[in-house]
Design a protein around this nucleic acid. Structure first.
Lengths: 344, 344
DNA sequence: ATGAAAGCGCTAACAA
DNA sequence: TTGTTAGCGCTTTCAT
C-alpha cells in the first residue's frame, strides 16, 4: 500500500524479463535517455556519468534491445544478402567479406537464399523487407519487374553485385561477363588454340559469358564452338560428363572454357582418366579462381574475380548510405583477370 | 496565434514514411488490431473482413514491420547461426538446410562468423543477443565460460551442433568425433592397412578425431601413427604439403586419414604427381563427404556426416521451442558413416 | 550536459 | 467476431 494504488485494474504485460535501459538508468541514478546517450554517444556525456552508467551496465549484464532501438530510430543496423544458393562456393567469399566489413561497423548480416530460379522470390523479398534492413545486397541483378518494384517501393538501399547493367536499381558493384567471354577467347587464341568449347551452368551470368565467348570465337574466324549447358549449381560430376559429351560430339577440341572451377576440375579429372594430356592436348580454363585452383595438378588457369573486394565495396556503399554520407559514385566495376597457369 | 489550436506544442516525429498497419486498417474500415488478426490469425476473422483487409494490403503494398511486431510480442522470428568461417564448405550444408527449414516456417536467419579462434567472440555474442533472436545455433560447442554465461543469462534457446558433450548449454545435435577416429582405424585395419597417418586441421574437433585415431591405432597394436597438423581452415595446398612431409618423415605409410575432403584431394593430387598409386600403395580417407568426393578419380572414401539433417533438426528444435511446443528430447546424435570408395 | 514527453508500429490483455 | 487500451524498449524532439 505504499502509494497511489488507486489505479483502475492495472493491465500487466510483462516484457521479456530482461534487463532494460530503465534498469541501468535507475541503478546509475540518471534518466533513461541519459543512459542511452552514455552508451551511444559517449562524447556528449560527462566523464563521471559515463563511468556510473558503464558500471551499471557491467553489474546488470545489460544488452541493448536493438529491435526497440531500430524501431525508435528507423535504423535497424541489419543488412540482408540474397544469394542464389548458400552452399555454392562462388559467392561465399563475397558474403564473408561483406559480413566482416559490416560486423566491424556494428551491422549484422541476414541471409536469404533466392535459388537460381526466380520462383518464390517475392515472398523472400517481403520477408526481408519486413525486417527493415538498412541495405540489401543482391548477388546478381534483379530482373523481375515485380521484385524491382517492391525494392524501389521499400526505399531500402540496394546493391546489385557480380554483374553490370545500364539500369541498376540503385547501386552496383560487378564486372562484365561479356568482357570475360571475349577475353578468354583472346587468351586461348593467343596461345594457339583453335577448336574451342564451353561448358556453362544454366544460370544467366554463365550463359552470358558463354554467348560472348561464342560470338568472339566467331568474330575471330574460328569454327563452330561446341557448347554444353549443365544445370546450376555446377559440380565436378557435371564437368566430367560434359567433357565426355564433348569428346563424342566434337572430337579434336583443343580448349575448354568452364563456367566454374569445379567444372574445370571435373574436366581435368575426366581428361586424365582418359589419358588426355592437359594442357598438351586440351587446355582447360576455369572461372572463379577458387583457392584450390592454383594447387591442382596441373595448376588451373582461371578467371579471377575479386569477390572480397565486391563484398567490401557493397558494405561500404550501404554503410555510407545508412550514415548519411554523401555518395559520389553508385557503380563500381571491379573487373577481372585471367590468371595463367599450367592448364593452358 | 491564428486560432484556438490549444494543442500543446505538437511534437512531430515522422516515422519511416512507409505504409503501416494503421493505414491498412483505415482503408479497410476496421480497427488496427483487427487488421493484425486478419493477417496473423486469419482463422479468427470473418470471411468478408479478411477479404477487405487483404484487398487493402494489396492496394497499399503493405509489408509488416517485424521489428515492431517482435518488440510487441517478444518473438523476433529471427534465428542466429554462428559458424567458424563463412567460406568453409563443411558447415554450409547445415546452414543451408537450417535456412530452408526456418524460412519455410517464417523465420529469418542471421549469420555470425566466430572464427576458429575464440577471440572477439563475446562481442559477437552481444551483437547477436541484442537482436533478441528466438534461437541461436552454434556450429560446435561453446567452451568459453564467459560465452556460456552470456547465453544462459540471455535465456535464448541454444542448439550446439556438430559435436557431442555431456554438458550442453541447452539443446544438442551432433555426433561423436571420438567414435569417428576409432571407426576409421577399424575400417583401415580391416582392409589390411597397418602403417597409418593422420592429417588434421588444428581446430578442436579435428584434433579430437586425430587423438582418438591415434589411441585406437595404439590399442590395435599398430606402430606409431604419423601426424601432421595443418592450420584450419584446411586447404588442398596444405594437403599436398602435409603428404610431402609425411613421405619424408615416415616412409612406408599405407594409409592417410585426412580431416577434410579438400585435404584428401590435396593428398591424392600430390600422390599422383609423385607416382604413388592410390589405393594400391596408399589408402586415402577424407572427412565430410563433400559432393565432389564420389566423382574424384579414384573416388574418395570419406566419413559422411548428414549436415542437412543437423540443420533440419536444429531448426526443428528452435521452432518447437519458439512455438511453445513440448520438447521430449534435447539431444540428438545423428551419427556418421564411412562411405567406402576406390581410394581405400 | 541532462531531462521530460511523446511516439516508432505493432500485439497482449481485457472487454463487449 | 471485433474493439479499446496500454504498453514492448528505445530514441527523437524540445526544453532547461
Amino acid at each position: 500500500m505504499n502509494d497511489e494504488d488507486n489505479t483502475p485494474a492495472r493491465r500487466t504485460r510483462r516484457g521479456s524479463g530482461a534487463v532494460t535501459l530503465h534498469d541501468v538508468a535507475r541503478l546509475a541514478g540518471v534518466a533513461p535517455i541519459t543512459a542511452s546517450r552514455a552508451l551511444n554517444t559517449p562524447g556528449q556525456v560527462s566523464k563521471a556519468l559515463l563511468e556510473k552508467v558503464n558500471d551499471a551496465v557491467a553489474r546488470t549484464g545489460y544488452v541493448p534491445n536493438r529491435m526497440a532501438g531500430g524501431l525508435a530510430s528507423a535504423r535497424s543496423r541489419l543488412v540482408a544478402a540474397l544469394v542464389p544458393t548458400i552452399s555454392g562456393p562462388v559467392f561465399m567469399e563475397t558474403v564473408r567479406s561483406l559480413n566482416e566489413a559490416l560486423a566491424a561497423q556494428g551491422y549484422q548480416l541476414m541471409l536469404g537464399q533466392s535459388g537460381y530460379a526466380d520462383s518464390r522470390e517475392d515472398a523472400l523479398l517481403d520477408a526481408i523487407i519486413s525486417r527493415r534492413p538498412d541495405g540489401i545486397v543482391l548477388t546478381g541483378i534483379m530482373h523481375s519487374p515485380e521484385g524491382r518494384k517492391r525494392l524501389l517501393a521499400a526505399g531500402i538501399p540496394v546493391v546489385e553485385t557480380w554483374d553490370l547493367t545500364p539500369t541498376p536499381i540503385d547501386m552496383l558493384v560487378g564486372f562484365s561477363h561479356v568482357d570475360v567471354g571475349r577475353a578468354v577467347v583472346d587468351f586461348l587464341y593467343a596461345r594457339g588454340r583453335r577448336r574451342l568449347a564451353v561448358i556453362a551452368g544454366d544460370d544467366e551470368r554463365s550463359k552470358r559469358r558463354q554467348q560472348a565467348f561464342q560470338a568472339a570465337a566467331h568474330a575471330a574466324g574460328l569454327g563452330e564452338v561446341a557448347v554444353v549447358i549443365v544445370p546450376a549449381p555446377t559440380t565436378l560430376k557435371s564437368g566430367r560428363s560434359a567433357l565426355l559429351q564433348l569428346l563424342q560430339t566434337s572430337p579434336g577440341l583443343d580448349a575448354v572454357f568452364c563456367s566454374s572451377d569445379l567444372l574445370a576440375l571435373g574436366v581435368m579429372t575426366e581428361a586424365q582418366w582418359r589419358g588426355i594430356k592437359v594442357p598438351e592436348q586440351l587446355a582447360v580454363l576455369g572461372f572463379g579462381d577458387l583457392e584450390f585452383a592454383a594447387d591442382l595438378q596441373p595448376a588451373l588457369t582461371s578467371v579471377r574475380i575479386d569477390g572480397m573486394a565486391i563484398g567490401r565495396q557493397a558494405a561500404q556503399f550501404i554503410v555510407d548510405r545508412a550514415e548519411g554520407r554523401p555518395v559520389d559514385t553508385r557503380v563500381v566495376d571491379v573487373g577481372f583477370s585471367i590468371v595463367p597457369r599450367d592448364s593452358t
